[in-house]
Amino acid sequence: MFSKEIFYFSIVLVGLLVMLTGLCLYLMIKKMMDNKNRTKIEKYKEEYQLALFQLLHEGIEDKRFLNSSPLQTRALVELLAGFSKVLSSPDILKRVQEFAEDHLQPFILSQLKHRRWSIRMNALYWIQDFRMSSMREPLRELRDSGSMSKSEEIQLLKIDVLFNDRDLLPRLTDTLHELTEFEYSLLFQSLGKGQFQPLVQAFDELPDVMKYALIDSIGVKNRMEHIAFLQRLLTNDSTELRIRALKAVVGMEYYLDIPTLSIHLRAESWQERLMAIKACEYIRSPELSPYLQELMSDPSFYVRSQAAQSLLRLPNGKSVLGEMAVHAEDGYARDMAAQWLERGAVS
């Protein structure tokens, strides 16, 4: 009985060894073939580089681009992707698009339908780089499949932005995957003026994560045409929206009048008070001194520190801090004034 068990165990063990050996051989052969193909691709890229450059600059077609093998096509795709990132002339970008749609579309379409996620993602990047508007239908099929990953959906949205798709707004608000504020911000920062305005108009209906990303994008991209929109948000009932609007205004270095600032300097939220103090740095008016002195006794350390820093930048601010360091009734205010006087002396 015991010897029979050993016999069966030996058969299983031998079977496993054969399978592992076969797998190792397969991986080794595949690696060798991949290396061999990569060497060929690099060789083709060297051969085609000058000819493709001439085509993009002068429109001179090379016969070698016709009836290319899969490896030659791959070399052309990689070359074209590199050129598209460094050449920005409208005429050249138009030739990039035409060449991709005339010569590379079947290859890129096959990659777009591949079962491997990384290969599909590369295809989406190429479609964006080459501005292949002829791929709209395959892209629609990928979206309608409902099986796309989050990365694929984000890349599809980037392509929608590039093509100025008429369904961009509903696609942004009704995504298959839940997008983060950061992901929305990246998308919004690539929008043109005509694409941005519908989002501003629909602001009240947007989910909070999109509202926050939209406000931040206005500040990051310095979209001065939406200053009036930000100013309206400064009176919003939502504390978070007011803080975000203040942050965007600060990022744009926009001047807010002192009566408006005074409301936020005395807000209930310490974050709102802090952001309002930062806005004071672009005004530097002596009229702000009483508000900043009052904030030197704020319960929040960050607010006290920012108030002292802003006071130091005002005309006669150093003398005001010197007076507070000695005579302020609040101990926190005295300490903070002394700290910033010392920092000012060092700098």
Rank of each mutant, 00 (worst) to 15 (best):
S110K: 11
S68C: 11
A123D: 03
Y48C: 00
E42S: 06
E178P: 02
R284F: 02
Y282T: 11
S269H: 07
G15F: 14
R166Y: 09
E61W: 14
I159L: 03
D129W: 13
F163Y: 07
V320K: 01
K221H: 06
R343H: 07
L156H: 09
D204Y: 09
D257E: 14
M210C: 11
R334D: 02
V346E: 09
L241I: 13
L50H: 11
N122K: 14
L341F: 03
E101S: 09
E61I: 14
T180K: 10
F107N: 11
E101F: 06
D298L: 03
H226F: 13
F182L: 14
P286M: 03
S289H: 01
R171N: 13
L261P: 02
Q105F: 12
S110N: 10
S149D: 05
E183L: 07
Q97Y: 05
T180I: 03
R244F: 12
Q201A: 08
R284L: 10
D160N: 13
F203M: 05
H177D: 04
L25K: 12
K94F: 11
P315Q: 10
G194Q: 15
G219W: 07
E253S: 12
V86T: 14
R64A: 06
V326C: 00
F229L: 01
A51N: 04
F203I: 06
I60Q: 13
F163H: 07
F229P: 02
F53S: 14
S69R: 01
R343I: 05
S319F: 08
E294A: 10
Y332Q: 12
S319Q: 13
R244E: 12
K211E: 07
R116D: 08
V326N: 05
E323F: 06
Y282R: 07
I215M: 07
M336H: 02
E272I: 00
V326L: 05
R38P: 02
D165N: 12
V249Y: 04
S262W: 00
M135T: 04
M28F: 14
H103K: 15
V303N: 05
H57K: 11
S10F: 12
T180F: 03
D165K: 10
